[in-house]
């Protein structure tokens, strides 16, 4: 893909905006994986480029952002979760944040469903819903970049997007804009199989068993004949990528976040 250095993408922070007496339309909650994980940083960048491209007034918290506390809560450490949540809520409320978009379903679920009871009430959307909105409004047309015609893509549902929050169609409609062949795995939507990372599993070795969950899932994905596995979650990204490597298919099968595919389709 051609370098697109002629256009300068910007990442304003809430602190910058507040100093200038401005408020963004939307806060992009980057999340820990989006900030630190080398692979997922590329997703963050793809999404930021889309935000720049459509001219939305957005901002990030930058160094003021902290883990939502999701993995601590799921592991059973409610104290730590609530410490994180309260501190984040203080920051968010301090900036008078109204609307948040995030590319991480775990952050999304926690911000949307679990922060209100602790005093943090925001309109929270996942980037799949946000991208769907941009496509429906015609602000993203997926025309000027790479063509996905004839490519086979299968979408892996993230548990915290799907079952947890009933978001099944938004990521699929985003992918539909690529004009590729979308193929479904047998276990999809409400029956989607976990990648194996949720509930803080990502942060420890699995219990003894006869297989790793991500291998089971990747085998199912490979069974569709897809050359691209689309995900919408940083943990799914790692688990599916590792699974593809485990099956020695990393040369022929790629794992991408939906925003990366849209950014490439749009030539960003």
């Amino acid at each position: 893909m051609e370098a697109t250095t002629e256009k300068v993408y910007k990442v304003p922070t809430m602190a910058d905006m507040a100093a200038a007496g401005e408020e963004p339309e939307i806060l992009f909650w980057v999340g820990c994986a989006g900030s630190f994980d080398d692979r997922y940083k590329r997703v963050t960048i793809a999404f930021v480029r889309i935000l720049n491209h459509v001219g939305i007034k957005f901002a990030v918290l930058g160094p003021e952002e902290a883990c939502t506390g999701d993995p601590a809560r799921r592991a059973g450490n409610e104290f730590l979760f609530q410490m994180q949540a309260m501190a984040n809520i203080q920051v968010l409320n301090g900036y008078n944040v109204k609307k948040i978009v995030t590319a991480c379903p775990h952050c999304f679920n926690t911000l949307k469903n679990e922060y209100p009871e602790l005093g943090g009430e925001y309109e929270v959307v996942h980037h799949s819903q946000f991208l769907q909105g941009l496509i429906n409004e015609g602000r993203v047309r997926v025309k000027d970049g790479e063509s996905f015609k004839g490519r086979r893509i299968t979408f892996h549902d993230s548990c915290y997007l799907g079952r947890a929050n009933k978001i099944y169609e938004a990521p699929r409609e985003v992918l539909a804009a690529l004009d590729a062949d979308l193929v479904e795995m047998k276990r999809s939507r409400t029956n989607g199989l976990c990648c194996g990372a949720g509930g803080a599993q990502y942060f420890k070795e699995p219990e003894p068993g006869n297989k790793d969950v991500n291998v089971e899932r990747v085998q199912e994905a490979l069974g569709t004949g897809a050359d691209t596995i689309a995900v919408a979650c940083p943990f799914c990204m790692t688990m599916m990528s590792d699974g593809v490597k485990n099956q020695n298919r990393e040369d022929s099968v790629k794992v991408y976040d939906i925003s990366e595919l849209i950014a490439r389709g749009e030539g960003l």
């Binding site: 300068v8 910007k10 630190f36």
Partner: peptide, 19 residues
């Protein structure tokens, strides 16, 4: 402030790669 051992001050470093 992250589940991994990264310095919180490096949290925004990704923005340097955006272009």
């Amino acid at each position: 402030m992250a589940p991994w051992k990264f310095s919180p001050s490096d949290r925004f470093n990704w923005a340097e790669q955006v272009n």
